Computed example of a mutant assay.
Amino acid sequence: MSQTEFKLVECPRDAMQGLHDFVPTALKSQYLNLLLQVGFDTLDFGSFVSPKAIPQLADTAEVLANLDLDATNTKLLAIVANLRGVETAIKHQEISYLGFPFSISETFQQRNTNSSIKQSLVTAEEMLSLCVKHNKKAVVYLSMGFGNPYGDEWNYEIVEKWADVLVDKGVEIISLADTVGISTPEKINEILPKLLSRFSHTEIGIHLHSTPAERFEKIEAAYHAGVKRIDSALKGFGGCPMAADDLTGNIATEEVISFLNSKGENLNLNMDKWNEAMVLSGKVFR
């Protein structure tokens, strides 16, 4: 597997969004600028959502203005939750990807974006249309992709059904999201190979949440399942504040890097800049 086949997506936005104390804009920008120099394919840097919902990311536009994009090939991804967010994000030429959380759980879709699955599908269609017009790509996160803790019906057929609907609408990148950390190696091995085979012309990735003790086995399962797009966050910080009060963290990027290096993968990352970001993270995540 060559370096170009792997897409590592670093997710500081996901890591920071649940922090209670506001991280100053200058410090956020400094941290993101270091991550931009590491060499990740994509940086999930911020979101254009309601400041009341996610106050930590209310300064996304200001942070974007402070980013140095001249010396990086890393592409920027911003999360949006409704049409207003889409219309704001597409105005920024620096952003390559718009990420939209589409839940296959009616309960969580309401909880996360205050809209139904049906309404969210309409939003996704409008987003796709605007992305085409503004030379951007949509990344749809299929959340609750590994199970549902809210009592809504869940099975693989439901996952595949909604993936099929989204691909039919024109979605080219789907990231299967384990919003509450209930995936297991067994579920990963069951679901991902089927999706990768069924949607061979669609980029299928994973966005896993996990406790530290379970991270490695999930990374290993995803690798052997054939996934080449992996979301993670430095030190495994973060989680979804809309899903639980006690956040289940992200997969730790350093563990993804270590695992892939052990398999002989050429990631071509600037580890000096990565180590600088690791040190600075102590000021961001207090």
Score class of each variant (00 low, 15 high):
M1C: 02
S2C: 11
K7F: 01
E10V: 02
E10L: 08
R13G: 08
D14T: 13
G18M: 05
G18Y: 04
G18P: 05
F22M: 14
P24N: 07
P24Q: 07
T25V: 12
A26R: 12
A26N: 11
K28I: 06
S29Q: 04
Q30D: 12
Y31H: 07
L32H: 12
N33I: 05
L36M: 11
Q37P: 09
G39S: 04
F40W: 14
F45N: 04
F45Y: 14
S47V: 02
I54P: 06
Q56G: 05
Q56S: 05
E62K: 11
L64S: 03
D68L: 04
L69D: 02
L76D: 04
L76M: 05
L76E: 03
I79M: 15
G85E: 09
T88E: 14
T88R: 10
G99N: 05
G99C: 02
I104R: 06
T107G: 10
Q110S: 14
R111Y: 02
N112A: 10
T113Q: 12
N114Y: 03
K118Y: 15
Q119H: 04
V122L: 13
V122K: 14
T123E: 11
A124M: 09
E126N: 14
M127G: 03
C131Q: 01
K133F: 02
K133G: 05
H134Q: 11
N135V: 07
K136R: 06
K136W: 03
L142G: 03
S143R: 07
F146P: 09
N148S: 15
N148A: 09
N148C: 15
N148F: 07
P149G: 05
E153I: 15
Y156M: 15
I158K: 15
I158C: 04
K161S: 07
A163Q: 03
V165P: 09
K169L: 14
K169M: 14
E172S: 14
I173S: 06
I174C: 11
D178M: 06
V180R: 05
V180M: 11
G181P: 00
I182K: 02
S183K: 07
S183A: 15
S183N: 11
E186M: 09
K187M: 08
I188P: 01
I188N: 01
N189I: 00
L192Y: 00
P193L: 01
L196T: 01
G205T: 01
I206P: 06
H207W: 06
L208Q: 10
H209K: 08
S210K: 00
S210L: 01
T211D: 12
A213R: 13
A213M: 10
E214V: 06
R215L: 00
F216A: 12
E220D: 08
A222K: 00
Y223T: 00
R229P: 08
I230M: 10
I230V: 10
L234W: 02
G236Q: 07
G239E: 12
P241C: 08
M242R: 12
A243Y: 12
A243S: 15
A244H: 09
L247Y: 07
G249Y: 02
A252V: 03
T253Y: 00
E255S: 05
E255K: 10
V256E: 09
S258M: 10
S258K: 14
L260F: 13
L260W: 05
K263I: 06
G264F: 08
G264S: 11
E265T: 13
N266C: 10
D272W: 02
K273H: 12
N275M: 13
E276K: 11
M278C: 06
G282W: 13
F285Q: 00
